[in-house]
């Protein structure tokens, strides 16, 4: 496993990093956790001429959970930090459910959430979570910072909307307006495997009514699927058996899986249906128990 020749730079400031990316143009890549990029380079599926290592940049390793429940995840915040954060566990059950299912412990120690969003693997987990939560990415380039909604950020398989001289500096999850609930389920054949199919469900519940819902799917399309119709069908409703079934039907419809060695398209669609049903049923049971 020997990558092609490349230039390596490890700048100390974000401006320097942006300048390097600007010079490198389309042949430059940002290195954060390296858990996807480095294997791709070793397989020579990726052969960037310039690697800009952002691990020395100050102020990017934050994980801020605000009092209002809003969360900011810096570009150097590792999966492990999210997995071990009590604040995250209390503020966002969806993130807390997903964090321990990201890859394996070795990858979680180095890999980053923001890097995972940028990599835009259709089988990635975090993009589904951030989509379900209605989050956005903050990008910094020569012209300053801009916010990009996650649904606009990922444009296709392994493609994002960033300009070549922009760095994704953080991901932002908005503060909830009501009680949060939800979950993340993924079918994998083994720890560290990519998702055969996975589902993130994020709810905000006021009393017994859903006031906001997000449902996003992974592994069942050429990019993360935002199952908007399924989520919208829950808003204003209680989590009745009928509502759950309708949302699961709509989510399965939104999936665009293909058959491969991990399973047939019909099977993956069925798994999405089952997972949406299971997460919503568990939320409704927990809510009933709490009430």
């Amino acid at each position: 496993m020997y990558p092609s020749r490349f230039r390596y730079e490890a700048p100390r400031t974000i401006d320097e990093a942006i300048q390097l990316l600007h010079e490198g143009g389309a042949e430059a890549k940002v290195l954060a956790g390296g858990q996807s990029l480095v294997p791709l380079m070793k397989l020579r599926f990726a052969a960037p001429e310039l690697l800009v290592d952002i691990n020395n940049l100050p102020g990017l390793d934050h994980l801020d959970v605000a009092a209002d429940g809003g969360i900011r995840v810096g570009a150097l915040c590792r999966h492990r930090d999210l997995e071990r954060s009590l604040d995250v566990a209390q503020a966002q059950p969806v993130m807390a459910a997903a964090a321990p299912l990201i890859a394996d412990p070795v990858v979680r120690t180095r890999g980053t959430l923001v890097g995972s969003l940028c990599h835009a693997d259709p089988q990635g987990d975090w993009a589904a979570v951030v989509t379900a939560l209605g989050g956005h990415v903050v990008a910094q380039g020569p012209g300053g910072r801009r916010d990009i909604a996650i649904t606009d950020f990922v444009t296709g398989p392994f493609q994002n909307v960033l300009a070549y001289d922009e760095v994704a500096v953080e991901a932002v999850l908005p503060p909830p307006r009501a009680r949060v609930a939800g979950g993340f389920l993924k079918l994998e054949r083994r720890v560290g495997d990519f998702a055969t199919a996975g589902t993130a469900v994020a709810l905000e519940i006021d009393g017994d009514r859903v006031v906001r819902a997000g449902i996003a799917l992974t592994g069942v399309g050429s990019r993360t699927v935002d199952a908007r119709a399924a989520a919208d069908s829950l808003v204003g409703q209680g989590l009745t058996g009928e509502a759950i079934m309708r949302a699961a039907d709509l989510a399965a419809e939104a999936a665009q899986p293909t058959s491969d060695h991990r399973g047939s398209a019909a099977y993956k669609r069925h798994v999405i249906h089952t997972f949406v049903t299971r997460i919503l049923t568990r939320v409704s049971q927990t809510s009933e128990a709490a009430a």
Binding site: L187, R189, T196, R262, G263, H270
Partner: peptide, 24 residues
């Protein structure tokens, strides 16, 4: 694999894993 077991349960038939893999 889970999809093979699921197919066996729901379709009530034996499931072959012989290559080539099935695609759409």
């Amino acid at each position: 694999l889970p999809d093979r077991v699921y197919e066996a349960i729901t379709q009530r038939h034996d499931v072959s894993g012989a290559p080539p893999i099935r695609t759409d």
